[in-house]
Design a protein around this nucleic acid. Structure first.
Lengths: 216, 216
DNA sequence: GTCTATAGATAGATAGAC
DNA sequence: GTCTATCTATCTATAGAC
């Protein structure tokens, strides 16, 4: 029970139930990302929390629903970043560069999200579909991209007639593959796509590519 | 036993042992691609062959080694395609377009390979590393790309100073994501990246992007 | 080389007390 | 809401006959 006269300690900012839920989701994110859906162990998730395996079933119902909740939370974090992005005052070229960089940085900072997305695709997207039945998961970044492309076409700096969804796919592809494909790529070509020393290089490469494409 | 006076039936072109091995690999490719490494069932793989579960252990030693063999075979097929590629007589722009298209087509035609690569990355590339300890897996397409880039820079059509490995990563990223990320992308943006009606569009988009980037 | 039967380990899920 | 103990199913792997 949280009462008003109880001092708010750092790990007590949430009511107990919400905090337990949040703890479980945090631990589950790591475990699912580590081992995949079938490789993940509910036992191991419980061991990473202050609570027990029984509570996971109590709060989420089962492994499947837990994974769906983990996914939903991960996407929510990504889209939160996109919402904060304010590029309305920038010229189209700079704006699209910023958008590509923000997408790049988020993948860079959250390899777990990338892994979860990869895992979810192995399983045909079934959990995400389930999650979407309850709350919509929207990507605000797409609307921003649409505006940038319109502005660029109007001012004549972008000659290619590109669809916003397609361009978003292109940007996502590069960001995703750099993280999700790094092990096989590294093994075959002896190059670590995620080496810190090459991070700025790849971020610039992505933005240059997108802009070159838009300028036709 | 295959003897000289026995008629060679279509499914008897290989000696029995090799044929059984090949059958198992074929079935295992499908099952691993369907369910992931931990989700795949050795029982199910056996059921898809003319042989039994016991033989899988007899031939491959275990599930892990079987998956490694499946990967090795899948990469072999990809690199076989790259070897057949003859672009020496083409101008650099056309040559790089051809290379991008061949890579695109191979991913399009072999979604199972794409899924296997995704699965292998979930598991940190350990099986591929194991496979490489025995036989090298080389990507001949990379040498071709290097030659094209050199020729393009010399003739002055390519102004960007791009590394062949990096450009290969960029091309692979797009081809990979279109297949490996289609479920989550489709769920979020309501667009099927692998719809047959859009295939030519995306193939051209990839080539256009690469060429625009190389022309600076 | 090929089969049947089974060992041995471990997972997800739950019962039931408090 | 939280714990311990356990059920039930299932999976990889192997023994052993032929």
């Amino acid at each position: 029970m949280t009462s008003v006269d109880e001092p708010v300690r750092p790990d007590r900012r949430l009511p107990d139930a919400a905090r337990t839920r949040s703890d479980i989701l945090e631990a589950a994110t790591g475990e699912f990302a580590r081992a995949g859906y079938d490789g993940a162990r509910v036992e191991e998730i419980a061991a990473r929390t202050r609570t027990t395996k029984r509570m996971i079933y109590y709060y989420f119902g089962g492994k499947k629903q837990l994974f769906a909740a983990v996914l939903e939370r991960a996407y929510g974090a990504l889209h939160g970043v996109e919402e904060l992005l304010d590029v309305g005052h920038l010229d189209p070229v700079t704006a699209v560069r910023r958008l590509a960089e923000v997408t790049f940085d988020h993948h860079e900072r959250h390899p777990d999200l990338v892994r979860l997305v990869g895992i979810e695709n192995i399983h045909g997207g079934e959990h995400l579909a389930a999650a979407r039945r309850f709350g919509r998961i929207d990507a605000p970044g797409l609307a921003t991209l649409r505006e940038i492309l319109d502005a660029g076409r109007e001012s004549g700096v972008f000659t290619a007639d590109v669809d916003a969804v397609d361009l978003h796919a292109m940007i996502s592809a590069f960001c995703f593959y750099r993280v999700a494909g790094r092990h096989t790529f590294g093994a075959l070509f002896d190059r670590d796509l995620t080496a810190p020393a090459r991070r700025d290089h790849y971020r610039a490469m992505l933005a240059d590519m997108v802009i070159a494409y838009l300028k036709g």
